[in-house]
Write a protein that binds this DNA or RNA. Sequence first.
RNA 1: GGCAGGAUAGCCAAGUGGUAAGGCCGGGCUCUGCAAAAGCCCCAUGCGCCGGUUCGAUUCCGGCUCCUGCCUCCA
Length: 465
Amino acid sequence: MSAEPSAELRLYNSLTRAVEAFRPRVDKKVGLYACGPTVYNHAHIGNFRSFLYGDLLRRVLRHFGFDVTSVMNFTDVDDKTIRGSRAAGESLRIFTDRYIAEFRRDMETLNLLPQDVQPRATDHVPEMIALIGRLVEKGLAYASGDGSVYFRVAALPDYGKLSRLDKEGLKPGARVAQDEYQKETFGDFALWKAWSPDDGDVAWESPWGKGRPGWHIECSAMAMHYLGEELDLHCGGIDLLFPHHENEIAQSEGATGRPFARCWGHSAHLLVDGQKMSKSLGNLFTVRDVEAKGYTGRELRYVLIKAHYRQSLNFTWDELAAARVALSRIDNWIVRWKALPASALTAALPVGAAFLNAFSEALADDLNISGALGHLFDFVHETNRLMDKGEPVPDLPAIWEKVDAVLGLGIRTAEVPPEIAALGAERLAARAAKDWKKSDALRQQLDALGWSVRDSAKGQELVRK
RNA sequence: GGCAGGAUAGCCAAGUGGUAAGGCCGGGCUCUGCAAAAGCCCCAUGCGCCGGUUCGAUUCCGGCUCCUGCCUCCA
Protein backbone atom coordinates (compact mmCIF):
# COMPACT_ATOMS: atom_id res chain seq x y z
CA MET A 1 0.00 0.00 0.00
CA SER A 2 1.37 3.42 -0.90
CA ALA A 3 2.64 5.54 1.95
CA GLU A 4 0.73 8.73 1.29
CA PRO A 5 -2.47 9.69 -0.46
CA SER A 6 -2.01 11.59 -3.69
CA ALA A 7 -4.67 14.18 -2.94
CA GLU A 8 -3.49 17.59 -1.76
CA LEU A 9 -4.82 18.70 1.59
CA ARG A 10 -6.96 21.83 1.46
CA LEU A 11 -8.02 23.66 4.59
CA TYR A 12 -10.26 26.59 5.34
CA ASN A 13 -8.21 29.52 6.57
CA SER A 14 -10.11 31.93 8.79
CA LEU A 15 -7.61 34.61 7.87
CA THR A 16 -8.46 34.56 4.17
CA ARG A 17 -11.91 33.04 4.64
CA ALA A 18 -11.31 30.57 1.90
CA VAL A 19 -10.37 26.95 1.49
CA GLU A 20 -6.78 26.86 0.27
CA ALA A 21 -4.03 24.35 -0.30
CA PHE A 22 -2.26 23.76 2.98
CA ARG A 23 1.46 24.39 2.70
CA PRO A 24 3.66 24.59 5.77
CA ARG A 25 6.74 26.79 5.84
CA VAL A 26 9.20 23.92 5.68
CA ASP A 27 8.48 20.85 3.50
CA LYS A 28 6.16 18.57 5.40
CA LYS A 29 6.89 19.89 8.88
CA VAL A 30 3.93 21.38 10.69
CA GLY A 31 3.90 23.38 13.90
CA LEU A 32 0.35 23.23 15.25
CA TYR A 33 -0.91 25.18 18.23
CA ALA A 34 -4.32 24.54 19.74
CA CYS A 35 -5.86 26.66 22.46
CA GLY A 36 -6.48 24.39 25.40
CA PRO A 37 -8.86 24.48 28.32
CA THR A 38 -9.02 26.78 31.29
CA VAL A 39 -8.73 24.30 34.10
CA TYR A 40 -11.20 25.47 36.72
CA ASN A 41 -13.79 22.69 36.35
CA HIS A 42 -14.62 19.73 34.13
CA ALA A 43 -14.51 20.46 30.45
CA HIS A 44 -17.88 19.88 28.82
CA ILE A 45 -18.62 18.02 25.61
CA GLY A 46 -18.86 21.30 23.73
CA ASN A 47 -15.26 22.01 24.68
CA PHE A 48 -14.39 18.55 23.51
CA ARG A 49 -15.99 19.12 20.17
CA SER A 50 -13.26 21.62 19.40
CA PHE A 51 -10.51 19.56 20.96
CA LEU A 52 -11.71 16.65 18.87
CA TYR A 53 -11.55 18.89 15.82
CA GLY A 54 -7.92 19.60 16.69
CA ASP A 55 -7.34 15.89 17.11
CA LEU A 56 -8.91 15.05 13.77
CA LEU A 57 -6.91 17.81 12.11
CA ARG A 58 -3.73 16.34 13.50
CA ARG A 59 -4.59 12.82 12.45
CA VAL A 60 -5.49 13.99 8.97
CA LEU A 61 -2.22 15.90 8.68
CA ARG A 62 -0.40 12.70 9.59
CA HIS A 63 -2.50 10.78 7.11
CA PHE A 64 -1.22 13.12 4.41
CA GLY A 65 2.34 12.53 5.47
CA PHE A 66 2.96 15.66 7.50
CA ASP A 67 5.31 15.59 10.44
CA VAL A 68 3.29 17.43 13.08
CA THR A 69 4.53 19.03 16.26
CA SER A 70 1.45 19.69 18.33
CA VAL A 71 1.17 22.02 21.30
CA MET A 72 -1.89 22.60 23.43
CA ASN A 73 -1.80 24.77 26.52
CA PHE A 74 -3.53 24.67 29.85
CA THR A 75 -4.71 28.03 31.08
CA ASP A 76 -4.10 27.61 34.77
CA VAL A 77 -4.23 31.21 35.89
CA ASP A 78 -7.13 33.59 35.33
CA ASP A 79 -10.09 34.96 37.27
CA LYS A 80 -11.93 31.66 37.31
CA THR A 81 -9.07 29.45 38.39
CA ILE A 82 -8.10 31.91 41.11
CA ARG A 83 -11.66 32.18 42.33
CA GLY A 84 -12.07 28.41 42.26
CA SER A 85 -8.88 27.67 44.15
CA ARG A 86 -9.69 30.21 46.83
CA ALA A 87 -13.19 28.83 47.21
CA ALA A 88 -11.71 25.35 47.55
CA GLY A 89 -9.12 26.57 50.03
CA GLU A 90 -6.35 25.15 47.88
CA SER A 91 -3.31 26.58 46.22
CA LEU A 92 -3.78 27.47 42.57
CA ARG A 93 -1.38 24.69 41.61
CA ILE A 94 -3.15 21.95 43.55
CA PHE A 95 -6.54 23.13 42.36
CA THR A 96 -5.60 23.25 38.68
CA ASP A 97 -3.59 20.01 38.91
CA ARG A 98 -6.81 18.21 39.67
CA TYR A 99 -8.65 19.56 36.65
CA ILE A 100 -5.69 18.93 34.40
CA ALA A 101 -5.74 15.31 35.53
CA GLU A 102 -9.49 15.16 34.85
CA PHE A 103 -8.99 16.66 31.44
CA ARG A 104 -6.32 14.12 30.56
CA ARG A 105 -8.62 11.34 31.69
CA ASP A 106 -11.35 12.65 29.41
CA MET A 107 -8.86 12.94 26.56
CA GLU A 108 -8.04 9.29 27.00
CA THR A 109 -11.70 8.34 27.17
CA LEU A 110 -12.28 10.09 23.86
CA ASN A 111 -9.05 8.74 22.41
CA LEU A 112 -7.48 12.12 21.73
CA LEU A 113 -3.83 11.76 20.89
CA PRO A 114 -1.69 13.41 23.54
CA GLN A 115 0.03 16.54 22.26
CA ASP A 116 3.79 16.64 21.98
CA VAL A 117 3.78 19.44 24.53
CA GLN A 118 1.07 20.47 26.97
CA PRO A 119 2.49 23.55 28.64
CA ARG A 120 0.76 25.34 31.45
CA ALA A 121 0.67 29.08 31.62
CA THR A 122 2.14 29.37 35.12
CA ASP A 123 5.27 27.57 33.96
CA HIS A 124 5.92 30.24 31.33
CA VAL A 125 5.45 33.55 33.05
CA PRO A 126 9.05 34.69 32.36
CA GLU A 127 8.51 34.23 28.61
CA MET A 128 5.31 36.25 28.86
CA ILE A 129 7.06 39.05 30.74
CA ALA A 130 9.78 39.09 28.11
CA LEU A 131 7.23 39.32 25.32
CA ILE A 132 5.38 42.15 27.05
CA GLY A 133 8.75 43.87 27.45
CA ARG A 134 9.34 43.74 23.72
CA LEU A 135 5.94 45.27 23.09
CA VAL A 136 6.50 48.06 25.59
CA GLU A 137 9.87 48.83 24.00
CA LYS A 138 8.26 49.12 20.59
CA GLY A 139 5.59 51.44 21.87
CA LEU A 140 2.89 48.85 21.27
CA ALA A 141 2.08 48.54 24.94
CA TYR A 142 1.97 50.85 27.91
CA ALA A 143 1.82 50.59 31.66
CA SER A 144 -1.12 52.25 33.31
CA GLY A 145 -1.02 53.93 36.66
CA ASP A 146 -1.98 50.86 38.66
CA GLY A 147 0.80 48.62 37.34
CA SER A 148 -1.19 46.89 34.61
CA VAL A 149 0.10 46.81 31.07
CA TYR A 150 -2.14 47.18 28.03
CA PHE A 151 -1.72 46.57 24.35
CA ARG A 152 -2.10 49.74 22.30
CA VAL A 153 -4.45 48.67 19.54
CA ALA A 154 -4.24 52.05 17.79
CA ALA A 155 -0.53 51.46 17.18
CA LEU A 156 -1.10 48.39 15.05
CA PRO A 157 -2.63 49.37 11.70
CA ASP A 158 -3.92 45.97 10.71
CA TYR A 159 -5.48 45.11 14.06
CA GLY A 160 -8.76 43.36 13.35
CA LYS A 161 -7.68 41.53 10.23
CA LEU A 162 -8.74 38.13 11.50
CA SER A 163 -12.16 38.97 12.91
CA ARG A 164 -12.66 41.84 10.46
CA LEU A 165 -14.16 43.88 13.18
CA ASP A 166 -13.70 47.58 12.77
CA LYS A 167 -11.59 48.68 15.71
CA GLU A 168 -13.21 52.11 15.59
CA GLY A 169 -16.49 50.35 16.06
CA LEU A 170 -15.45 48.56 19.25
CA LYS A 171 -17.55 50.15 21.89
CA PRO A 172 -18.11 49.45 25.54
CA GLY A 173 -20.83 46.90 25.97
CA ALA A 174 -22.75 45.24 28.71
CA ARG A 175 -20.18 42.51 29.13
CA VAL A 176 -17.31 44.76 30.12
CA ALA A 177 -16.56 45.13 33.76
CA GLN A 178 -16.63 48.83 34.55
CA ASP A 179 -14.11 49.05 37.31
CA GLU A 180 -11.05 47.30 36.02
CA TYR A 181 -9.67 49.32 33.19
CA GLN A 182 -7.44 52.32 32.96
CA LYS A 183 -6.95 52.14 29.26
CA GLU A 184 -6.20 54.70 26.59
CA THR A 185 -8.94 53.38 24.35
CA PHE A 186 -11.62 50.84 24.74
CA GLY A 187 -10.15 48.24 22.41
CA ASP A 188 -6.88 48.00 24.31
CA PHE A 189 -6.50 44.77 26.21
CA ALA A 190 -4.54 43.67 29.25
CA LEU A 191 -1.16 42.01 28.82
CA TRP A 192 -0.32 42.19 32.49
CA LYS A 193 -2.74 42.61 35.33
CA ALA A 194 -1.67 44.38 38.47
CA TRP A 195 -2.16 42.37 41.64
CA SER A 196 -5.42 42.88 43.48
CA PRO A 197 -6.41 41.50 46.88
CA ASP A 198 -8.75 39.06 45.14
CA ASP A 199 -5.69 37.37 43.68
CA GLY A 200 -4.49 36.23 47.08
CA ASP A 201 -1.02 34.78 46.82
CA VAL A 202 -1.20 34.39 43.06
CA ALA A 203 1.36 36.90 41.82
CA TRP A 204 4.63 37.22 39.96
CA GLU A 205 7.19 39.99 40.08
CA SER A 206 7.57 41.98 36.88
CA PRO A 207 9.17 45.25 35.74
CA TRP A 208 5.72 46.80 36.17
CA GLY A 209 5.15 45.48 39.63
CA LYS A 210 3.47 42.48 41.17
CA GLY A 211 0.74 40.89 39.06
CA ARG A 212 -0.23 38.15 36.66
CA PRO A 213 -0.32 37.71 32.91
CA GLY A 214 -3.39 38.44 30.80
CA TRP A 215 -5.08 35.61 28.97
CA HIS A 216 -4.03 36.33 25.41
CA ILE A 217 -0.34 36.76 26.09
CA GLU A 218 -0.09 33.21 27.43
CA CYS A 219 -0.82 31.61 24.12
CA SER A 220 1.46 33.93 22.16
CA ALA A 221 4.33 33.30 24.53
CA MET A 222 3.91 29.54 24.76
CA ALA A 223 3.25 29.07 21.07
CA MET A 224 6.36 30.99 20.11
CA HIS A 225 8.42 29.32 22.81
CA TYR A 226 7.70 25.84 21.52
CA LEU A 227 7.03 26.36 17.83
CA GLY A 228 9.01 29.44 16.91
CA GLU A 229 7.78 32.86 15.90
CA GLU A 230 5.80 31.59 12.92
CA LEU A 231 3.28 28.80 13.20
CA ASP A 232 1.91 26.75 10.35
CA LEU A 233 -1.47 26.20 11.94
CA HIS A 234 -3.36 27.58 14.88
CA CYS A 235 -6.74 26.20 15.79
CA GLY A 236 -9.49 26.53 18.35
CA GLY A 237 -13.19 27.11 18.82
CA ILE A 238 -14.93 29.79 16.79
CA ASP A 239 -15.66 31.87 19.85
CA LEU A 240 -11.94 32.32 20.33
CA LEU A 241 -11.64 34.10 17.02
CA PHE A 242 -12.40 37.37 18.69
CA PRO A 243 -10.93 38.68 20.86
CA HIS A 244 -8.50 35.94 21.79
CA HIS A 245 -6.95 35.06 18.46
CA GLU A 246 -7.14 38.60 17.16
CA ASN A 247 -5.15 39.67 20.19
CA GLU A 248 -2.69 36.84 19.86
CA ILE A 249 -1.97 38.04 16.36
CA ALA A 250 -1.59 41.61 17.54
CA GLN A 251 0.85 40.69 20.31
CA SER A 252 2.87 38.23 18.32
CA GLU A 253 3.12 40.14 15.08
CA GLY A 254 3.58 43.37 16.95
CA ALA A 255 6.60 41.90 18.71
CA THR A 256 8.17 39.98 15.84
CA GLY A 257 7.06 41.90 12.78
CA ARG A 258 6.38 38.56 11.15
CA PRO A 259 3.16 36.69 10.41
CA PHE A 260 2.17 34.68 13.44
CA ALA A 261 0.22 31.78 11.94
CA ARG A 262 -0.12 30.95 8.26
CA CYS A 263 -3.45 29.25 8.68
CA TRP A 264 -6.15 29.64 11.31
CA GLY A 265 -8.83 27.03 11.84
CA HIS A 266 -11.98 27.37 13.91
CA SER A 267 -14.62 24.83 14.82
CA ALA A 268 -18.27 25.70 15.14
CA HIS A 269 -20.23 25.29 18.34
CA LEU A 270 -21.86 22.25 19.74
CA LEU A 271 -25.51 22.97 20.44
CA VAL A 272 -27.79 21.08 22.76
CA ASP A 273 -31.45 21.14 21.88
CA GLY A 274 -30.69 23.79 19.31
CA GLN A 275 -28.99 26.14 21.69
CA LYS A 276 -25.48 26.81 22.86
CA MET A 277 -24.64 24.88 25.98
CA SER A 278 -24.71 26.87 29.14
CA LYS A 279 -25.02 26.25 32.81
CA SER A 280 -28.05 28.46 33.16
CA LEU A 281 -29.99 26.45 30.58
CA GLY A 282 -29.02 23.24 32.35
CA ASN A 283 -27.94 21.68 29.08
CA LEU A 284 -24.27 21.39 29.85
CA PHE A 285 -22.87 17.87 29.80
CA THR A 286 -19.45 16.54 30.71
CA VAL A 287 -17.81 13.37 29.46
CA ARG A 288 -18.64 11.83 32.81
CA ASP A 289 -22.32 12.68 32.35
CA VAL A 290 -22.31 10.84 29.07
CA GLU A 291 -20.56 7.85 30.61
CA ALA A 292 -23.05 7.85 33.46
CA LYS A 293 -25.80 7.32 30.88
CA GLY A 294 -24.04 4.20 29.74
CA TYR A 295 -22.34 5.50 26.63
CA THR A 296 -18.70 4.94 25.86
CA GLY A 297 -16.01 7.38 24.91
CA ARG A 298 -15.83 6.09 21.37
CA GLU A 299 -19.57 6.53 20.94
CA LEU A 300 -19.26 10.13 22.06
CA ARG A 301 -16.21 10.58 19.89
CA TYR A 302 -18.15 9.36 16.88
CA VAL A 303 -21.03 11.73 17.54
CA LEU A 304 -18.77 14.73 18.03
CA ILE A 305 -16.63 14.00 15.01
CA LYS A 306 -19.07 12.82 12.37
CA ALA A 307 -20.24 16.21 11.17
CA HIS A 308 -18.10 18.83 9.49
CA TYR A 309 -16.17 20.91 12.01
CA ARG A 310 -17.30 24.26 10.65
CA GLN A 311 -20.94 23.30 10.94
CA SER A 312 -22.70 23.75 14.22
CA LEU A 313 -23.62 20.38 15.61
CA ASN A 314 -26.73 19.67 17.62
CA PHE A 315 -26.10 17.13 20.34
CA THR A 316 -28.92 14.78 21.30
CA TRP A 317 -29.08 11.51 23.17
CA ASP A 318 -30.80 9.98 20.15
CA GLU A 319 -27.67 10.67 18.14
CA LEU A 320 -25.62 8.81 20.71
CA ALA A 321 -27.95 5.83 20.44
CA ALA A 322 -27.71 5.97 16.63
CA ALA A 323 -23.93 6.16 16.93
CA ARG A 324 -23.92 2.97 18.96
CA VAL A 325 -25.74 1.09 16.21
CA ALA A 326 -23.61 2.59 13.44
CA LEU A 327 -20.43 1.68 15.31
CA SER A 328 -21.60 -1.86 15.87
CA ARG A 329 -21.91 -2.16 12.11
CA ILE A 330 -18.22 -1.45 11.84
CA ASP A 331 -17.44 -3.71 14.80
CA ASN A 332 -19.31 -6.60 13.23
CA TRP A 333 -17.53 -6.08 9.98
CA ILE A 334 -14.20 -6.22 11.81
CA VAL A 335 -15.24 -9.38 13.61
CA ARG A 336 -16.03 -10.92 10.24
CA TRP A 337 -12.74 -10.21 8.54
CA LYS A 338 -10.69 -11.02 11.61
CA ALA A 339 -12.06 -14.54 11.36
CA LEU A 340 -10.96 -14.82 7.74
CA PRO A 341 -7.94 -16.92 6.79
CA ALA A 342 -5.01 -14.90 5.49
CA SER A 343 -5.50 -16.48 2.09
CA ALA A 344 -8.83 -14.66 1.70
CA LEU A 345 -7.11 -11.27 1.85
CA THR A 346 -5.91 -10.06 -1.51
CA ALA A 347 -3.88 -6.91 -1.13
CA ALA A 348 -4.08 -5.93 -4.78
CA LEU A 349 -7.87 -5.90 -5.08
CA PRO A 350 -8.85 -2.58 -6.69
CA VAL A 351 -11.86 -1.96 -4.45
CA GLY A 352 -9.46 -1.43 -1.55
CA ALA A 353 -7.36 1.18 -3.30
CA ALA A 354 -10.47 2.85 -4.70
CA PHE A 355 -11.93 3.18 -1.23
CA LEU A 356 -8.75 4.52 0.34
CA ASN A 357 -8.53 7.01 -2.46
CA ALA A 358 -12.09 8.23 -2.02
CA PHE A 359 -11.64 8.36 1.75
CA SER A 360 -8.50 10.47 1.42
CA GLU A 361 -9.97 12.73 -1.21
CA ALA A 362 -12.91 13.54 1.06
CA LEU A 363 -10.59 14.31 3.95
CA ALA A 364 -8.37 16.42 1.71
CA ASP A 365 -11.36 18.66 1.07
CA ASP A 366 -11.18 20.62 4.32
CA LEU A 367 -11.73 17.54 6.47
CA ASN A 368 -14.96 16.34 4.91
CA ILE A 369 -15.46 13.66 7.50
CA SER A 370 -19.09 12.97 6.61
CA GLY A 371 -18.06 12.20 3.07
CA ALA A 372 -15.19 10.04 4.28
CA LEU A 373 -17.49 8.15 6.61
CA GLY A 374 -19.95 7.66 3.78
CA HIS A 375 -17.22 6.00 1.75
CA LEU A 376 -16.30 3.84 4.73
CA PHE A 377 -19.84 2.51 5.09
CA ASP A 378 -20.03 1.92 1.37
CA PHE A 379 -16.83 -0.05 1.63
CA VAL A 380 -18.06 -2.03 4.63
CA HIS A 381 -21.13 -2.87 2.65
CA GLU A 382 -19.22 -3.85 -0.44
CA THR A 383 -16.77 -6.11 1.39
CA ASN A 384 -19.55 -7.67 3.46
CA ARG A 385 -21.12 -8.71 0.20
CA LEU A 386 -17.86 -10.22 -0.96
CA MET A 387 -17.56 -12.13 2.28
CA ASP A 388 -21.16 -13.32 1.94
CA LYS A 389 -20.24 -14.79 -1.38
CA GLY A 390 -17.02 -16.25 -0.05
CA GLU A 391 -14.99 -14.19 -2.47
CA PRO A 392 -11.59 -12.70 -1.69
CA VAL A 393 -11.50 -9.26 -0.09
CA PRO A 394 -8.78 -6.60 -0.03
CA ASP A 395 -6.25 -6.50 2.78
CA LEU A 396 -8.79 -5.26 5.28
CA PRO A 397 -6.54 -5.23 8.36
CA ALA A 398 -4.04 -2.96 6.60
CA ILE A 399 -6.77 -0.70 5.25
CA TRP A 400 -8.49 -0.42 8.58
CA GLU A 401 -5.22 0.50 10.24
CA LYS A 402 -4.91 3.51 7.93
CA VAL A 403 -8.54 4.49 8.31
CA ASP A 404 -8.59 4.19 12.05
CA ALA A 405 -5.39 6.19 12.40
CA VAL A 406 -7.64 9.04 11.25
CA LEU A 407 -10.91 8.14 12.93
CA GLY A 408 -9.54 6.88 16.23
CA LEU A 409 -12.46 4.53 16.76
CA GLY A 410 -10.34 1.52 17.64
CA ILE A 411 -11.13 -2.13 17.52
CA ARG A 412 -13.27 -3.40 20.31
CA THR A 413 -11.45 -6.20 22.03
CA ALA A 414 -13.69 -9.20 22.33
CA GLU A 415 -11.97 -11.14 25.06
CA VAL A 416 -14.52 -13.48 26.53
CA PRO A 417 -14.12 -13.84 30.31
CA PRO A 418 -13.97 -17.48 31.57
CA GLU A 419 -17.31 -17.33 33.42
CA ILE A 420 -19.05 -16.10 30.29
CA ALA A 421 -17.36 -18.73 28.19
CA ALA A 422 -18.49 -21.37 30.70
CA LEU A 423 -22.11 -20.27 30.42
CA GLY A 424 -21.74 -20.36 26.67
CA ALA A 425 -20.41 -23.89 26.78
CA GLU A 426 -23.29 -24.92 28.99
CA ARG A 427 -25.76 -23.49 26.53
CA LEU A 428 -24.05 -25.29 23.69
CA ALA A 429 -24.42 -28.55 25.58
CA ALA A 430 -28.09 -27.85 26.27
CA ARG A 431 -28.67 -27.16 22.62
CA ALA A 432 -26.93 -30.34 21.60
CA ALA A 433 -29.31 -32.18 23.92
CA LYS A 434 -32.20 -30.18 22.41
CA ASP A 435 -33.01 -28.86 25.88
CA TRP A 436 -34.45 -25.61 24.51
CA LYS A 437 -35.80 -24.43 27.83
CA LYS A 438 -32.38 -24.58 29.44
CA SER A 439 -30.58 -23.12 26.45
CA ASP A 440 -33.02 -20.20 26.32
CA ALA A 441 -32.58 -19.56 30.03
CA LEU A 442 -28.82 -19.48 29.60
CA ARG A 443 -29.20 -17.12 26.69
CA GLN A 444 -31.23 -14.80 28.89
CA GLN A 445 -28.70 -15.05 31.66
CA LEU A 446 -25.88 -14.09 29.28
CA ASP A 447 -28.00 -11.26 27.95
CA ALA A 448 -28.42 -9.91 31.47
CA LEU A 449 -24.66 -10.04 31.88
CA GLY A 450 -24.24 -7.90 28.80
CA TRP A 451 -23.40 -10.57 26.27
CA SER A 452 -25.47 -11.46 23.29
CA VAL A 453 -25.49 -14.90 21.82
CA ARG A 454 -25.36 -15.31 18.10
CA ASP A 455 -26.09 -18.60 16.51
CA SER A 456 -24.53 -18.48 13.13
CA ALA A 457 -23.54 -21.00 10.53
CA LYS A 458 -20.13 -21.14 12.20
CA GLY A 459 -21.69 -21.99 15.53
CA GLN A 460 -22.24 -19.98 18.66
CA GLU A 461 -20.63 -16.59 19.11
CA LEU A 462 -20.53 -14.49 22.25
CA VAL A 463 -20.42 -10.76 21.68
CA ARG A 464 -20.31 -8.00 24.23
CA LYS A 465 -23.24 -5.65 23.82
C1' G B 1 -26.79 47.44 13.88
C1' G B 2 -21.90 44.95 12.15
C1' C B 3 -19.56 40.19 11.07
C1' A B 4 -20.01 34.83 10.25
C1' G B 5 -22.48 30.15 9.28
C1' G B 6 -27.02 27.56 8.24
C1' A B 7 -32.16 25.79 6.09
C1' U B 8 -31.54 18.56 1.93
C1' A B 9 -36.46 12.42 3.73
C1' G B 10 -39.37 10.75 10.56
C1' C B 11 -34.11 12.10 12.85
C1' C B 12 -28.71 13.18 11.73
C1' A B 13 -25.88 14.49 7.42
C1' A B 14 -22.67 14.74 2.48
C1' G B 15 -23.02 16.52 -2.35
C1' U B 16 -23.73 18.23 -7.52
C1' G B 17 -25.42 22.95 -13.65
C1' G B 18 -27.94 17.13 -15.96
C1' U B 19 -31.81 14.69 -12.40
C1' A B 20 -30.21 13.33 -4.69
C1' A B 21 -23.72 9.76 -0.57
C1' G B 22 -23.85 7.69 4.13
C1' G B 23 -25.78 6.62 9.28
C1' C B 24 -30.28 5.95 12.45
C1' C B 25 -35.51 4.65 12.26
C1' G B 26 -39.07 1.74 9.20
C1' G B 27 -40.46 -2.43 5.69
C1' G B 28 -38.97 -7.15 3.35
C1' C B 29 -35.64 -11.45 2.78
C1' U B 30 -31.79 -15.14 4.20
C1' C B 31 -30.16 -17.86 8.32
C1' U B 32 -32.47 -20.36 12.75
C1' G B 33 -35.41 -25.38 17.37
C1' C B 34 -37.53 -20.53 18.47
C1' A B 35 -35.43 -16.08 18.85
C1' A B 36 -31.75 -12.64 18.65
C1' A B 37 -27.76 -11.08 16.14
C1' A B 38 -25.59 -10.57 11.56
C1' G B 39 -25.75 -9.95 6.39
C1' C B 40 -28.58 -8.73 1.97
C1' C B 41 -32.66 -5.86 -0.53
C1' C B 42 -36.10 -1.57 -0.40
C1' C B 43 -37.12 3.28 1.50
C1' A B 44 -36.69 11.84 -0.94
C1' U B 45 -39.85 13.38 -8.81
C1' G B 46 -37.51 16.05 -3.67
C1' C B 47 -33.15 19.71 -1.56
C1' G B 48 -36.87 26.90 3.28
C1' C B 49 -40.12 30.52 0.04
C1' C B 50 -40.56 33.78 -4.54
C1' G B 51 -38.50 35.39 -8.99
C1' G B 52 -34.38 35.26 -12.77
C1' U B 53 -30.35 33.03 -15.96
C1' U B 54 -30.18 28.18 -18.61
C1' C B 55 -32.02 23.11 -23.12
C1' G B 56 -31.87 21.87 -17.89
C1' A B 57 -31.04 24.60 -10.88
C1' U B 58 -31.40 21.59 -5.12
C1' U B 59 -26.66 23.41 -7.08
C1' C B 60 -25.56 30.10 -10.31
C1' C B 61 -27.89 35.34 -9.60
C1' G B 62 -31.53 38.64 -7.00
C1' G B 63 -35.16 39.17 -3.17
C1' C B 64 -37.62 37.18 1.18
C1' U B 65 -38.52 34.19 5.64
C1' C B 66 -36.64 31.53 9.62
C1' C B 67 -32.47 29.43 12.76
C1' U B 68 -27.52 29.62 15.24
C1' G B 69 -23.08 31.98 16.79
C1' C B 70 -19.54 36.21 17.60
C1' C B 71 -19.13 41.68 18.54
C1' U B 72 -13.31 42.23 24.98
C1' C B 73 -11.28 37.38 28.79
C1' C B 74 -17.14 31.40 26.69
C1' A B 75 -14.28 25.60 22.80
